[in-house]
């Protein structure tokens, strides 16, 4: 368990998240992909704090801010899903094709 191995694991999580975001059609599944990607970011930040910062508390604050980004993204994302579903009855990206007009 060195900084490189943990960062590799974080990279794998980021890759799976990106694959998830691009391959899924439904809004909520795309958000699952974002969550997984931010999960990888948090792991990378934790690893860098542990191995390279010598216990610098600002490293932990960065992980907390990453968690904040995930919470805010989830809250506003689901609110948008509800708003779009109420206005347009669409639950997938193809459903709101009119924006391309």
């Amino acid at each position: 368990m060195t900084v490189v191995t943990v960062l590799l694991v974080a990279a794998v999580l980021l890759g799976i998240g990106t694959w998830g975001v691009l391959s899924q059609q439904s809004f909520v599944m795309i958000m699952m992909g974002f969550e997984l990607a931010i999960n990888g970011v948090m792991l990378a930040a934790g690893a860098l704090w542990r191995f390279t910062s010598g216990g610098e508390p600002r490293g932990q604050v960065l992980v907390v801010v990453a968690m904040l980004v995930m919470a805010v993204e989830a809250a506003i994302g689901f609110a948008l899903v509800v708003a779009v579903s109420r206005a347009r009855r669409a639950d997938t990206t193809e459903g709101i094709a009119e924006l391309r007009r």
Partner: peptide
């Protein structure tokens, strides 16, 4: 397309992790 981009991003971040020579410091 999604699989290719996923693999590329993993390889990209992995390369950064391997290339960067981070000198590890013990927690004080």
């Amino acid at each position: 397309v999604a699989v290719v981009v996923g693999v590329l991003s993993t390889a990209g971040f992995g390369a950064v992790a391997l290339a960067a020579d981070l000198d590890t410091v013990a927690i004080v």
